[in-house]
Amino acid sequence: MLMHVFAQIVLATEEGVPVPISEEADSGGGIDLLLPAAEELIAGIIAFSIVFFFVWKWAIPALNATLAARQQAIAAELESAEKAKLEAESLLTDYRTQVAGAKEEAAQIVSDARDAGESVKADIVTRAETEAEQVKVRAQEEIDSERVRVASDLKRQVADLSIDVAQKVVGSSIDANSQRELVDRYIDELGGVR
């Protein structure tokens, strides 16, 4: 059945419906293949010419423009990258100097603080020593004055006590003359003590 269809198609073309363009001899074999068909040659010339003009006038300029633009873009990109790098480097140097300065400053502050502390400590110690000395002196003075006061008190009490005792002992056994004598002497003695 399939073969029928093929045969019909072949018959149709052989009978000239639709019409073949040229009536070349079928016995030509493969040699006909080496001869160009006129309409194909013309089509080839036209098609290739169009392609050639397109490539020449549009495609190659477009390619060149694209590549040039890319080259420029890459160059600009590299330049800006270089610039950014330099900037970053200078920033880094800045920061490094700043950090170094800050470290120095910190060390200075610490040492200053230590010095200040030392001086405060010395001050305090000196003041404390002075105060202690003053306290000691005052205490000594107080002790001295107290001793004096106590001594005088004691003297007075001894005198009073002596008189009392003397009165009690002597009483009536002593006449008025000897009593006066004794008292006077005693008073003299007391005066000697004083």
Binding site: T13, P18, V19, P20, I21, S22, D26, G28, G29, G30, D32, L33, A37, E39
Partner: peptide, 12 residues
């Protein structure tokens, strides 16, 4: 039968 038949499509 003819190799040409593989290449010639000259039907308009």
């Amino acid at each position: 039968e003819n190799v040409k038949d593989l290449f010639e499509f000259r039907v308009e």
